[in-house]
Design a protein around this nucleic acid. Sequence first.
DNA 1: TTTCAAGGCAAACAGTCGTTTGCTTTGTAT
DNA 2: ATACAAAGCAAACGACTGTTTGCCTTGAAA
Lengths: 208, 208
Amino acid sequence: MASAKSSARKKSRAPPKAPRADNRLPQILDAAAALFAARGYQAASIRDIVKVAGMLPGSLYYHFANKDELLAAVYGEGVRRISTAVSAAVAKESDPWAGLEAACVAHLESLVAPSPYAKVVISVQPADVPPVAKALIALRDGYEQQFVALISALPLPLHLRDRKSRTTLRMLLLGALNWAPTWYRPSGASPKRIARDFIHLIKAELAP
Amino acid sequence: MASAKSSARKKSRAPPKAPRADNRLPQILDAAAALFAARGYQAASIRDIVKVAGMLPGSLYYHFANKDELLAAVYGEGVRRISTAVSAAVAKESDPWAGLEAACVAHLESLVAPSPYAKVVISVQPADVPPVAKALIALRDGYEQQFVALISALPLPLHLRDRKSRTTLRMLLLGALNWAPTWYRPSGASPKRIARDFIHLIKAELAP
DNA sequence: TTTCAAGGCAAACAGTCGTTTGCTTTGTAT
DNA sequence: ATACAAAGCAAACGACTGTTTGCCTTGAAA
Protein backbone atom coordinates (compact mmCIF):
# COMPACT_ATOMS: atom_id res chain seq x y z
CA MET A 1 0.00 0.00 0.00
CA ALA A 2 2.32 2.69 1.16
CA SER A 3 5.27 0.51 0.28
CA ALA A 4 7.86 1.47 -2.32
CA LYS A 5 6.86 -0.76 -5.20
CA SER A 6 5.69 1.76 -7.76
CA SER A 7 8.28 0.91 -10.42
CA ALA A 8 8.07 2.07 -14.02
CA ARG A 9 4.92 1.30 -15.98
CA LYS A 10 6.05 0.50 -19.54
CA LYS A 11 3.32 -0.39 -22.02
CA SER A 12 5.56 -1.25 -24.99
CA ARG A 13 5.92 -5.00 -24.42
CA ALA A 14 5.53 -6.20 -20.85
CA PRO A 15 1.96 -6.00 -19.56
CA PRO A 16 1.71 -4.45 -16.07
CA LYS A 17 -0.21 -7.47 -14.79
CA ALA A 18 -2.76 -7.19 -12.03
CA PRO A 19 -2.29 -8.19 -8.39
CA ARG A 20 -3.43 -11.73 -7.73
CA ALA A 21 -6.55 -12.73 -5.89
CA ASP A 22 -4.73 -14.90 -3.37
CA ASN A 23 -2.69 -11.94 -2.21
CA ARG A 24 -2.23 -12.27 1.55
CA LEU A 25 -1.48 -8.65 2.28
CA PRO A 26 -4.76 -8.22 4.16
CA GLN A 27 -3.86 -11.07 6.50
CA ILE A 28 -0.51 -9.46 7.19
CA LEU A 29 -2.16 -6.16 8.05
CA ASP A 30 -4.71 -7.84 10.31
CA ALA A 31 -2.07 -9.87 12.11
CA ALA A 32 0.21 -6.86 12.51
CA ALA A 33 -2.62 -4.71 13.83
CA ALA A 34 -3.58 -7.38 16.34
CA LEU A 35 -0.07 -7.85 17.65
CA PHE A 36 0.93 -4.18 17.62
CA ALA A 37 -2.20 -3.44 19.63
CA ALA A 38 -1.75 -6.33 22.05
CA ARG A 39 1.97 -6.11 22.80
CA GLY A 40 3.13 -2.78 21.44
CA TYR A 41 5.13 -2.09 18.31
CA GLN A 42 8.59 -3.04 19.51
CA ALA A 43 7.50 -6.19 21.32
CA ALA A 44 5.61 -7.61 18.37
CA SER A 45 8.14 -9.45 16.22
CA ILE A 46 7.99 -10.04 12.50
CA ARG A 47 8.05 -13.76 13.15
CA ASP A 48 5.01 -13.56 15.42
CA ILE A 49 3.12 -11.53 12.86
CA VAL A 50 3.80 -13.75 9.86
CA LYS A 51 3.01 -16.83 11.89
CA VAL A 52 -0.50 -15.52 12.50
CA ALA A 53 -0.77 -14.62 8.82
CA GLY A 54 0.43 -18.10 7.88
CA MET A 55 3.64 -17.18 6.11
CA LEU A 56 7.38 -17.17 6.52
CA PRO A 57 9.33 -14.13 7.76
CA GLY A 58 11.01 -13.33 4.48
CA SER A 59 7.73 -13.24 2.57
CA LEU A 60 6.67 -10.12 4.37
CA TYR A 61 9.41 -8.15 2.68
CA TYR A 62 7.76 -8.57 -0.66
CA HIS A 63 5.01 -6.27 0.61
CA PHE A 64 6.93 -3.93 2.90
CA ALA A 65 10.44 -2.58 2.81
CA ASN A 66 10.80 -2.91 6.58
CA LYS A 67 8.96 -3.13 9.88
CA ASP A 68 8.50 0.62 10.18
CA GLU A 69 6.61 0.81 6.92
CA LEU A 70 4.40 -2.05 8.00
CA LEU A 71 3.50 0.01 11.04
CA ALA A 72 2.80 3.04 8.87
CA ALA A 73 0.41 0.99 6.75
CA VAL A 74 -1.46 -0.36 9.78
CA TYR A 75 -1.54 3.09 11.33
CA GLY A 76 -2.90 4.58 8.12
CA GLU A 77 -5.62 1.97 7.92
CA GLY A 78 -6.47 2.66 11.56
CA VAL A 79 -6.84 6.36 10.94
CA ARG A 80 -8.94 5.65 7.87
CA ARG A 81 -11.33 3.46 9.85
CA ILE A 82 -11.80 5.91 12.68
CA SER A 83 -12.25 8.71 10.21
CA THR A 84 -14.90 6.80 8.29
CA ALA A 85 -16.80 5.92 11.45
CA VAL A 86 -16.78 9.52 12.63
CA SER A 87 -17.87 10.91 9.28
CA ALA A 88 -20.77 8.51 9.12
CA ALA A 89 -21.89 9.41 12.62
CA VAL A 90 -21.66 13.15 12.02
CA ALA A 91 -23.60 12.94 8.76
CA LYS A 92 -26.72 11.89 10.66
CA GLU A 93 -26.84 15.05 12.76
CA SER A 94 -27.63 18.63 11.87
CA ASP A 95 -27.31 20.49 15.18
CA PRO A 96 -23.66 21.49 15.80
CA TRP A 97 -23.53 20.20 19.37
CA ALA A 98 -25.25 16.97 18.39
CA GLY A 99 -22.71 16.55 15.60
CA LEU A 100 -19.78 16.99 17.95
CA GLU A 101 -21.33 14.57 20.41
CA ALA A 102 -21.86 11.97 17.69
CA ALA A 103 -18.27 12.40 16.57
CA CYS A 104 -16.95 11.91 20.11
CA VAL A 105 -19.04 8.80 20.62
CA ALA A 106 -17.87 7.30 17.32
CA HIS A 107 -14.28 8.23 18.09
CA LEU A 108 -14.25 6.58 21.49
CA GLU A 109 -16.19 3.55 20.29
CA SER A 110 -13.51 3.01 17.66
CA LEU A 111 -10.76 3.19 20.26
CA VAL A 112 -12.19 0.56 22.56
CA ALA A 113 -13.67 -1.67 19.87
CA PRO A 114 -12.44 -5.26 19.55
CA SER A 115 -10.86 -4.30 16.25
CA PRO A 116 -7.22 -3.49 16.90
CA TYR A 117 -6.53 -1.01 14.11
CA ALA A 118 -7.77 2.00 16.00
CA LYS A 119 -5.96 0.89 19.13
CA VAL A 120 -2.68 1.06 17.24
CA VAL A 121 -3.33 4.69 16.40
CA ILE A 122 -3.71 5.56 20.04
CA SER A 123 -1.17 3.31 21.74
CA VAL A 124 1.75 3.63 19.33
CA GLN A 125 3.66 6.79 20.03
CA PRO A 126 5.09 8.27 16.84
CA ALA A 127 8.15 9.50 18.70
CA ASP A 128 9.12 5.91 19.44
CA VAL A 129 9.50 5.16 15.73
CA PRO A 130 11.61 8.05 14.41
CA PRO A 131 11.87 6.94 10.76
CA VAL A 132 8.12 7.23 10.22
CA ALA A 133 7.19 9.55 13.07
CA LYS A 134 6.40 12.48 10.82
CA ALA A 135 4.20 10.39 8.58
CA LEU A 136 2.22 9.06 11.53
CA ILE A 137 1.73 12.51 13.00
CA ALA A 138 0.57 13.81 9.64
CA LEU A 139 -2.01 11.04 9.41
CA ARG A 140 -3.35 11.88 12.86
CA ASP A 141 -3.39 15.60 12.20
CA GLY A 142 -5.33 15.07 9.03
CA TYR A 143 -7.97 13.14 10.88
CA GLU A 144 -8.26 15.74 13.61
CA GLN A 145 -9.23 18.32 11.04
CA GLN A 146 -12.69 16.84 11.28
CA PHE A 147 -12.84 18.04 14.86
CA VAL A 148 -11.48 21.43 13.93
CA ALA A 149 -14.41 21.82 11.58
CA LEU A 150 -16.96 20.51 14.07
CA ILE A 151 -15.79 22.83 16.81
CA SER A 152 -15.56 25.86 14.59
CA ALA A 153 -19.25 25.33 13.83
CA LEU A 154 -20.25 25.58 17.48
CA PRO A 155 -22.20 28.68 18.52
CA LEU A 156 -20.11 29.63 21.54
CA PRO A 157 -20.58 32.57 23.90
CA LEU A 158 -18.90 35.75 22.73
CA HIS A 159 -15.88 35.58 25.01
CA LEU A 160 -15.02 32.11 23.69
CA ARG A 161 -15.45 32.66 20.00
CA ASP A 162 -11.77 33.17 19.21
CA ARG A 163 -9.62 30.54 17.57
CA LYS A 164 -7.51 29.95 20.64
CA SER A 165 -10.47 29.04 22.80
CA ARG A 166 -11.69 26.60 20.21
CA THR A 167 -8.26 25.00 20.04
CA THR A 168 -8.23 24.62 23.81
CA LEU A 169 -11.64 23.02 23.67
CA ARG A 170 -10.49 20.57 21.02
CA MET A 171 -7.38 19.58 22.95
CA LEU A 172 -9.39 19.14 26.12
CA LEU A 173 -11.94 16.92 24.48
CA LEU A 174 -9.70 14.82 22.25
CA GLY A 175 -7.14 14.38 25.01
CA ALA A 176 -9.72 13.12 27.45
CA LEU A 177 -11.13 10.74 24.84
CA ASN A 178 -7.74 9.45 23.73
CA TRP A 179 -6.75 8.78 27.30
CA ALA A 180 -9.97 7.00 28.16
CA PRO A 181 -8.84 3.59 26.85
CA THR A 182 -6.25 3.46 29.64
CA TRP A 183 -8.92 3.32 32.34
CA TYR A 184 -11.88 2.02 30.35
CA ARG A 185 -13.29 -1.31 31.50
CA PRO A 186 -15.95 -3.19 29.52
CA SER A 187 -17.78 -3.80 32.79
CA GLY A 188 -18.03 -0.07 33.49
CA ALA A 189 -19.62 2.79 31.63
CA SER A 190 -20.06 2.33 27.88
CA PRO A 191 -18.06 4.39 25.39
CA LYS A 192 -21.26 6.17 24.44
CA ARG A 193 -21.99 7.04 28.07
CA ILE A 194 -18.44 8.27 28.68
CA ALA A 195 -18.28 10.44 25.58
CA ARG A 196 -21.69 11.93 26.28
CA ASP A 197 -20.80 12.68 29.88
CA PHE A 198 -17.73 14.57 28.74
CA ILE A 199 -19.68 16.57 26.20
CA HIS A 200 -22.51 17.38 28.56
CA LEU A 201 -20.16 18.52 31.28
CA ILE A 202 -18.66 21.00 28.85
CA LYS A 203 -21.76 21.89 26.91
CA ALA A 204 -24.16 22.48 29.77
CA GLU A 205 -23.00 26.04 30.14
CA LEU A 206 -21.06 26.82 26.99
CA ALA A 207 -24.20 26.51 24.92
CA PRO A 208 -25.88 29.89 24.50
CA MET B 1 14.61 -0.23 46.29
CA ALA B 2 11.68 -2.24 45.16
CA SER B 3 13.98 -5.11 44.29
CA ALA B 4 13.83 -8.52 45.91
CA LYS B 5 16.87 -8.36 48.12
CA SER B 6 15.27 -8.32 51.53
CA SER B 7 16.86 -11.60 52.63
CA ALA B 8 16.95 -12.72 56.22
CA ARG B 9 18.29 -10.26 58.74
CA LYS B 10 20.10 -12.39 61.31
CA LYS B 11 21.61 -10.54 64.24
CA SER B 12 23.27 -13.53 65.88
CA ARG B 13 26.69 -13.19 64.26
CA ALA B 14 26.75 -11.42 60.92
CA PRO B 15 26.22 -7.68 61.12
CA PRO B 16 23.72 -6.35 58.54
CA LYS B 17 26.26 -3.85 57.26
CA ALA B 18 25.22 -0.57 55.71
CA PRO B 19 25.04 0.21 51.99
CA ARG B 20 28.22 1.78 50.72
CA ALA B 21 28.65 5.40 49.78
CA ASP B 22 29.83 4.64 46.26
CA ASN B 23 26.63 2.78 45.50
CA ARG B 24 25.73 3.52 41.87
CA LEU B 25 22.06 2.68 42.09
CA PRO B 26 21.06 6.34 41.63
CA GLN B 27 23.00 6.48 38.38
CA ILE B 28 21.25 3.36 37.16
CA LEU B 29 17.85 4.84 37.90
CA ASP B 30 18.73 8.12 36.20
CA ALA B 31 20.07 6.38 33.13
CA ALA B 32 17.09 4.04 32.93
CA ALA B 33 14.64 6.91 33.32
CA ALA B 34 16.36 8.86 30.57
CA LEU B 35 16.39 5.98 28.11
CA PHE B 36 12.94 4.65 28.93
CA ALA B 37 11.60 8.16 28.37
CA ALA B 38 13.55 8.77 25.19
CA ARG B 39 13.09 5.46 23.37
CA GLY B 40 10.36 3.60 25.22
CA TYR B 41 10.71 0.68 27.59
CA GLN B 42 11.21 -2.13 25.09
CA ALA B 43 13.61 -0.23 22.87
CA ALA B 44 15.90 0.81 25.71
CA SER B 45 18.35 -2.02 26.27
CA ILE B 46 20.09 -3.00 29.47
CA ARG B 47 23.40 -2.51 27.72
CA ASP B 48 22.52 1.07 26.75
CA ILE B 49 21.41 1.86 30.27
CA VAL B 50 24.46 0.53 32.06
CA LYS B 51 26.74 2.20 29.55
CA VAL B 52 25.31 5.59 30.54
CA ALA B 53 25.63 4.62 34.20
CA GLY B 54 29.23 3.54 33.59
CA MET B 55 28.91 -0.12 34.44
CA LEU B 56 28.77 -3.55 32.86
CA PRO B 57 25.49 -5.30 32.03
CA GLY B 58 25.78 -8.01 34.68
CA SER B 59 26.30 -5.50 37.46
CA LEU B 60 22.77 -4.24 37.13
CA TYR B 61 21.44 -7.55 38.37
CA TYR B 62 22.93 -6.98 41.77
CA HIS B 63 20.34 -4.22 42.23
CA PHE B 64 17.37 -5.57 40.27
CA ALA B 65 16.12 -9.05 39.61
CA ASN B 66 15.23 -8.21 36.02
CA LYS B 67 14.39 -5.42 33.61
CA ASP B 68 10.73 -5.27 34.62
CA GLU B 69 11.59 -4.52 38.21
CA LEU B 70 13.96 -1.80 37.09
CA LEU B 71 11.05 -0.22 35.28
CA ALA B 72 8.87 -0.54 38.37
CA ALA B 73 11.49 1.29 40.42
CA VAL B 74 11.79 4.12 37.89
CA TYR B 75 8.04 4.34 37.58
CA GLY B 76 7.64 4.49 41.34
CA GLU B 77 10.19 7.26 41.60
CA GLY B 78 8.38 9.12 38.81
CA VAL B 79 5.06 8.91 40.62
CA ARG B 80 6.71 10.04 43.82
CA ARG B 81 8.18 13.12 42.15
CA ILE B 82 4.96 14.19 40.49
CA SER B 83 3.07 13.59 43.69
CA THR B 84 5.50 15.71 45.67
CA ALA B 85 5.35 18.56 43.19
CA VAL B 86 1.56 18.55 43.20
CA SER B 87 1.31 18.42 46.97
CA ALA B 88 3.64 21.35 47.32
CA ALA B 89 1.68 23.39 44.81
CA VAL B 90 -1.66 22.63 46.40
CA ALA B 91 -0.44 23.49 49.87
CA LYS B 92 -0.04 27.14 48.86
CA GLU B 93 -3.69 27.57 47.97
CA SER B 94 -6.80 27.71 50.09
CA ASP B 95 -9.60 28.23 47.59
CA PRO B 96 -10.78 24.87 46.17
CA TRP B 97 -10.68 25.94 42.52
CA ALA B 98 -7.30 27.59 42.98
CA GLY B 99 -6.04 24.38 44.56
CA LEU B 100 -7.20 22.28 41.63
CA GLU B 101 -5.68 24.72 39.19
CA ALA B 102 -2.36 24.67 41.01
CA ALA B 103 -2.42 20.87 41.00
CA CYS B 104 -3.06 20.74 37.27
CA VAL B 105 -0.28 23.18 36.53
CA ALA B 106 2.18 21.23 38.68
CA HIS B 107 1.04 17.96 37.11
CA LEU B 108 1.54 19.12 33.54
CA GLU B 109 4.78 20.89 34.33
CA SER B 110 6.12 17.61 35.67
CA LEU B 111 5.11 15.78 32.52
CA VAL B 112 6.90 18.07 30.12
CA ALA B 113 9.85 18.89 32.34
CA PRO B 114 13.36 17.99 31.15
CA SER B 115 13.50 15.39 33.93
CA PRO B 116 12.52 12.07 32.40
CA TYR B 117 11.05 10.33 35.45
CA ALA B 118 7.59 11.78 35.05
CA LYS B 119 7.64 11.11 31.32
CA VAL B 120 8.08 7.43 32.01
CA VAL B 121 4.91 7.42 34.08
CA ILE B 122 2.93 8.80 31.18
CA SER B 123 4.52 7.13 28.18
CA VAL B 124 4.98 3.61 29.49
CA GLN B 125 1.76 1.70 29.19
CA PRO B 126 1.37 -0.78 32.05
CA ALA B 127 -0.40 -3.23 29.76
CA ASP B 128 2.76 -3.57 27.70
CA VAL B 129 4.66 -4.99 30.67
CA PRO B 130 2.33 -7.68 32.04
CA PRO B 131 4.53 -8.93 34.90
CA VAL B 132 4.43 -5.59 36.69
CA ALA B 133 1.34 -4.05 35.13
CA LYS B 134 -0.73 -4.29 38.30
CA ALA B 135 1.96 -2.67 40.39
CA LEU B 136 2.30 0.24 37.98
CA ILE B 137 -1.44 0.80 37.84
CA ALA B 138 -1.60 0.76 41.62
CA LEU B 139 1.09 3.40 41.83
CA ARG B 140 -0.78 5.65 39.41
CA ASP B 141 -4.11 5.11 41.12
CA GLY B 142 -2.59 6.02 44.45
CA TYR B 143 -1.34 9.29 43.05
CA GLU B 144 -4.68 10.14 41.47
CA GLN B 145 -6.31 10.03 44.88
CA GLN B 146 -4.96 13.53 45.31
CA PHE B 147 -7.24 14.64 42.52
CA VAL B 148 -10.17 12.74 43.94
CA ALA B 149 -9.78 14.78 47.10
CA LEU B 150 -9.31 18.07 45.28
CA ILE B 151 -12.39 17.58 43.15
CA SER B 152 -14.56 16.38 46.01
CA ALA B 153 -13.80 19.70 47.69
CA LEU B 154 -15.19 21.74 44.79
CA PRO B 155 -18.43 23.60 45.41
CA LEU B 156 -20.30 22.43 42.33
CA PRO B 157 -23.83 23.30 41.23
CA LEU B 158 -26.49 21.06 42.71
CA HIS B 159 -27.05 18.91 39.66
CA LEU B 160 -23.34 18.02 39.51
CA ARG B 161 -22.71 17.26 43.15
CA ASP B 162 -22.94 13.49 42.84
CA ARG B 163 -19.94 11.20 42.83
CA LYS B 164 -20.38 10.20 39.23
CA SER B 165 -20.18 13.75 37.94
CA ARG B 166 -17.06 14.35 39.94
CA THR B 167 -15.49 11.20 38.52
CA THR B 168 -16.32 12.36 35.01
CA LEU B 169 -14.75 15.71 35.73
CA ARG B 170 -11.60 14.04 37.02
CA MET B 171 -11.28 11.79 33.98
CA LEU B 172 -11.86 14.70 31.63
CA LEU B 173 -9.22 16.83 33.27
CA LEU B 174 -6.54 14.23 33.90
CA GLY B 175 -7.02 12.68 30.48
CA ALA B 176 -6.58 15.99 28.73
CA LEU B 177 -3.48 16.77 30.80
CA ASN B 178 -1.92 13.34 30.32
CA TRP B 179 -2.44 13.55 26.60
CA ALA B 180 -1.01 17.04 26.32
CA PRO B 181 2.64 15.90 26.10
CA THR B 182 1.86 14.30 22.73
CA TRP B 183 1.15 17.67 21.13
CA TYR B 184 3.04 20.00 23.44
CA ARG B 185 5.83 22.01 21.84
CA PRO B 186 8.25 24.11 23.91
CA SER B 187 7.81 26.89 21.37
CA GLY B 188 4.05 27.01 21.94
CA ALA B 189 1.93 27.65 25.00
CA SER B 190 3.57 26.98 28.37
CA PRO B 191 2.40 24.13 30.60
CA LYS B 192 1.00 26.70 32.99
CA ARG B 193 -0.96 28.39 30.23
CA ILE B 194 -2.34 25.10 28.94
CA ALA B 195 -3.41 23.79 32.32
CA ARG B 196 -5.04 27.11 33.22
CA ASP B 197 -6.89 27.27 29.93
CA PHE B 198 -8.33 23.84 30.56
CA ILE B 199 -9.41 24.71 34.06
CA HIS B 200 -10.92 28.04 33.07
CA LEU B 201 -12.87 26.52 30.24
CA ILE B 202 -14.45 24.13 32.70
CA LYS B 203 -14.68 26.39 35.70
CA ALA B 204 -16.17 29.45 34.06
CA GLU B 205 -19.65 28.12 34.45
CA LEU B 206 -19.36 25.25 36.89
CA ALA B 207 -18.41 27.60 39.66
CA PRO B 208 -21.49 28.69 41.61
C1' DT C 1 -1.89 -23.70 -23.68
C1' DT C 2 1.77 -20.89 -23.13
C1' DT C 3 4.03 -17.21 -20.64
C1' DC C 4 5.66 -14.37 -16.96
C1' DA C 5 5.48 -11.62 -13.15
C1' DA C 6 3.11 -11.72 -8.55
C1' DG C 7 3.89 -13.83 -4.51
C1' DG C 8 5.94 -17.00 -1.24
C1' DC C 9 9.43 -20.56 0.42
C1' DA C 10 13.77 -21.95 2.52
C1' DA C 11 17.66 -20.87 4.73
C1' DA C 12 20.77 -18.20 6.36
C1' DC C 13 23.24 -13.61 8.00
C1' DA C 14 24.94 -10.62 11.45
C1' DG C 15 23.60 -8.55 15.46
C1' DT C 16 21.36 -7.74 19.78
C1' DC C 17 18.70 -9.16 23.63
C1' DG C 18 18.07 -10.27 28.82
C1' DT C 19 20.34 -12.93 32.00
C1' DT C 20 23.71 -16.12 34.67
C1' DT C 21 27.94 -17.55 36.74
C1' DG C 22 32.23 -17.29 39.18
C1' DC C 23 35.57 -14.31 40.65
C1' DT C 24 37.61 -9.87 42.25
C1' DT C 25 37.79 -5.31 44.24
C1' DT C 26 36.73 -2.06 47.93
C1' DG C 27 34.44 0.46 51.57
C1' DT C 28 33.37 0.19 56.21
C1' DA C 29 32.54 -1.49 60.91
C1' DT C 30 35.13 -3.66 64.24
C1' DA D 1 44.90 -3.92 61.05
C1' DT D 2 41.52 -7.18 59.95
C1' DA D 3 37.33 -9.30 58.39
C1' DC D 4 33.44 -9.50 55.58
C1' DA D 5 29.74 -8.16 52.92
C1' DA D 6 28.50 -4.69 49.38
C1' DA D 7 29.23 -3.85 44.75
C1' DG D 8 31.01 -4.61 40.35
C1' DC D 9 33.92 -7.05 36.69
C1' DA D 10 34.58 -10.37 32.97
C1' DA D 11 32.83 -13.46 30.03
C1' DA D 12 29.82 -16.13 28.38
C1' DC D 13 24.93 -18.52 27.53
C1' DG D 14 21.05 -19.34 24.46
C1' DA D 15 17.44 -17.29 22.38
C1' DC D 16 15.61 -13.96 19.45
C1' DT D 17 15.88 -9.82 16.26
C1' DG D 18 15.08 -7.54 11.48
C1' DT D 19 16.54 -8.50 7.05
C1' DT D 20 18.66 -10.55 2.62
C1' DT D 21 19.33 -13.83 -0.99
C1' DG D 22 18.24 -17.18 -4.48
C1' DC D 23 14.94 -20.28 -5.99
C1' DC D 24 10.37 -22.13 -6.65
C1' DT D 25 5.19 -22.14 -7.26
C1' DT D 26 1.07 -20.42 -9.26
C1' DG D 27 -2.70 -17.41 -10.89
C1' DA D 28 -4.07 -14.96 -14.65
C1' DA D 29 -3.50 -12.49 -19.13
C1' DA D 30 -2.33 -13.66 -23.97
